[in-house]
Amino acid sequence: MSTRPLGSWNDGAAKRAIVGFVTAAAEEGTSDFVPPADRVAVFDNDGTLWVEKPAPVQTAFVLGKLAERMKADPSSADEWPYRALAAKDESFFRALDAQEPEAVTSMVKAIGAAWEGTTFGEFEAEAARYLASWHHERFGLPAPGLVYQPMLELFDYLRAYGWRLFVCSGGGRDFMRVISEEIWGLPRENVIGSAPEFAYRDGVLVRRAVLHGPVALGPGKPEYVLARTGRLPRFAAGNDDVDVEMLQSAQFAVLVVHDDDEREYAYSDGAARALATAREAGWTTVSVKNDWNAVLRQTPVQE
């Protein structure tokens, strides 16, 4: 692995734009200067920081839990989205894959009910067991091995200039927090997004079947960022339509374009609006094929 800053990034327009913005933001006394307190950088997770195809890392964890609930209570198969899961409704799975808000919201509600009453520690233990055994079907790697090397380098580059980093995920906030320190070096409080309310009962915190705020998709993302940081981001990165509002809220926006079916996957489903907005707004687009000379994490991953 290169020891140069952004060594896995090819010398192209995307890298030059990122370097130009970050270095200019550090130049005190100029119009481009960003005060240290305002140096907030926010990243989407699935498809932006790690591989999301053929399904996000968390998918099997969630589906397994919902399958357990249907087995314990067969009548739940008559409810939505259990009915779609029981019927293996491909249109529903495509909607989930494209992160269509209606489909995701229905799943989030089902997830809330499935883990209702579970303690904070019990949920984390379940997620940790899953992550310890799960491997990607194509690459054969555990979750930490699916992180994009160029994005890890971008994290280090931004940190060197005094930026505070956050992940805003439409998936489960608490699931990501289990491994955020291991895979990104981010404290768990810097992972924000979709999560349940908690209640303090008999001396312990338990999950409720009520969502804490909106689902972290579309407008929900900048809403979560503002609530957590008290600021809108100056730097934001995403990869599809549900990231558009977060990217629009930032001073500098990066859109990752998946176009490399040899080293990763080539797809644009769920990203048509993001691509059109990027062209109109002049966002920095990052081609996996052309802008990254390495894709997956290059540091050793412990099994």
Score class of each variant (00 low, 15 high):
24 A>R: 05
24 A>H: 02
24 A>Y: 01
24 A>S: 05
25 A>G: 01
25 A>V: 02
26 A>M: 03
26 A>V: 00
27 E>T: 03
27 E>I: 09
27 E>M: 09
28 E>I: 05
29 G>V: 03
30 T>C: 15
30 T>F: 13
31 S>T: 00
37 A>W: 08
38 D>W: 08
38 D>C: 03
39 R>Q: 01
39 R>D: 02
40 V>F: 00
41 A>I: 02
42 V>D: 02
42 V>L: 13
43 F>Q: 02
43 F>D: 02
44 D>A: 15
44 D>L: 11
45 N>K: 15
46 D>E: 14
46 D>S: 05
48 T>W: 05
50 W>H: 14
50 W>A: 01
51 V>K: 10
52 E>D: 15
52 E>T: 09
52 E>L: 10
55 A>I: 01
56 P>S: 04
56 P>Y: 10
56 P>F: 09
57 V>W: 06
57 V>T: 07
58 Q>H: 06
61 F>T: 09
63 L>P: 00
64 G>V: 10
64 G>H: 00
64 G>E: 07
65 K>N: 01
66 L>N: 03
66 L>M: 10
67 A>S: 14
67 A>Y: 09
68 E>C: 11
69 R>A: 06
69 R>F: 09
70 M>T: 03
71 K>I: 13
71 K>S: 11
72 A>E: 12
73 D>T: 12
